[in-house]
Structures are given as C-alpha cells and as structure tokens.
Amino acid sequence: MSNAIALKEITKRYKDVTALRSVSLTASKGEVFGLLGPSGSGKSTLLRIIDLLETPDSGEVQINGETVHSDSKDAFQTRRRIGMILQKPMVLNRSVENNLAYALLIRGWSEEEIHKRVDRELKRLGLEERRMKNARTLSGGEMQRLCFARSTIFDPALLILDEFTANLDPANVALLEDMVRGYASENEDRAVIVVTHNLFQAKRMCHRMALMWDGEIVEVADKKRFFEAPEDERTAAFVSGELVY
C-alpha cells in the first residue's frame, strides 16, 4: 500500500495567525481518511494546500510519491488528478450536461468519449430529462450530487471532500455518502480525504482519522482506536462531543 498523499511539516501563516504548524500526515491508496476537528483548526487550509490552491510557507506536498509545488506552471496537471467537493455547491451558469462535460472538455477529450461519460453520469444522477436545464435551477441536494459527479467524471486518484454534506438534509447526506463509498470501492488505487466535524459521518465513512486542533495534528488512529481508546485527552473530549465547534 503506497501513499496516495504525504504532507511533510506543512506550515502556513496568515499575517499574524499561524493556521498550520508543521503538519505531517499520510493517506494510503484504497483508504478513506477522515480529518476531524473544530472549526478554525486548519482543516480547510490543509485541503487547499493539498489541491495546490495555496502555497505553504514551509514543508512539502507529495502526491503519489512525487513532490509537487503550487507555484509551478505544471501545477494544473497535478490538480487534474485530484477531485474536490466543497460545502457549498458551485455550478457554472450552464446546462447540467455542460457542467458535467466541463472537466473533460478542458482535458481535450473527444466529443464521443465525453458524450459517453456524460450520459453515464446523467443516468446515475437520474437527471437525464433535465440535462439541458440550467444547473442553477436544481435543488440543493441535486446540485451537490451534480458537483460530485462533475468532480469525479475524470477518475481522479485522490478525492478531497470539505464538509460536503454540511448543508444537506439526511436523505441527501445518505445519497452522497453512498456515492463516495461507491467511488472508493471501484478502484483500490483511489484515496479519499474527508474533512468533517460530524462524528457519525466519520464513523460511517472512514478507515482512519486524525484530529486537528489549533493548526496541529493531535492524534492519528484507525477508527476503532480513535473512538474507543484515544490517546490524547482532546480526542477523548471531541469524540464525546465536548469540544466546542
């Protein structure tokens, strides 16, 4: 099992606030890795650094064993292997169909290939009759599912999710979690990093998880130990719902 992603001593400062202090972690291929913690602990910043949207002040990011830099002119190639889904669904002002096709269009896929993939996804999403409608007319749940589909349509090896069901009702939460589970199990080379503050979601989805607290990784453990026998007292407080978030 090789590392899908490895972060080595990542530090990031914003003016006089230190968002991340020398954070290191690894996630393996075939793993669903959870990143938990209260808001403001630096989880989102870490995700943005992984997706090369931000540059760390120090430290290294390695994707699949290869060191990558967010300010290199090939950064976009690395981003093409990563799929990201945010809390708020963000679709382009285009049809459902064109939103799905977008990631493939920019990669220069052939029209035929794109058509095949898009049809497949539309079927999965149950949005075939509404393929020509403006994506912004969809409901919240439908839009987030669309965002999932368009961010995975190009088979990224690494999927990162930032509170991706925080705005959804329970039915849609279940649907989205199923989609992630399905995606991860399709191919054992894929890895998923889930940022969530929802303990139950973490329990349902992740194999291993880490607790972040004030810019640092406090504890990393597999699910059983994380919940039943945490080493750090903050972890214990968090899993019993005591840490304020």
Binding site: F76, R79, I82, L86, M90, I106
Partner: peptide, 20 residues
Amino acid sequence: RSVKETVKSLGTTPRQSVLT
C-alpha cells in the same frame, strides 16, 4: 471567487480559467 477556485480545482490551465 468560489467559481474561480472550483474551476481551478477541476484542473484548468490559466488560459482555460480566464476563458471560463
């Protein structure tokens, strides 16, 4: 801003970002 970032995270080159 989130449109710009979403588009970037989907793997656009700088030129593709601008066009989108």
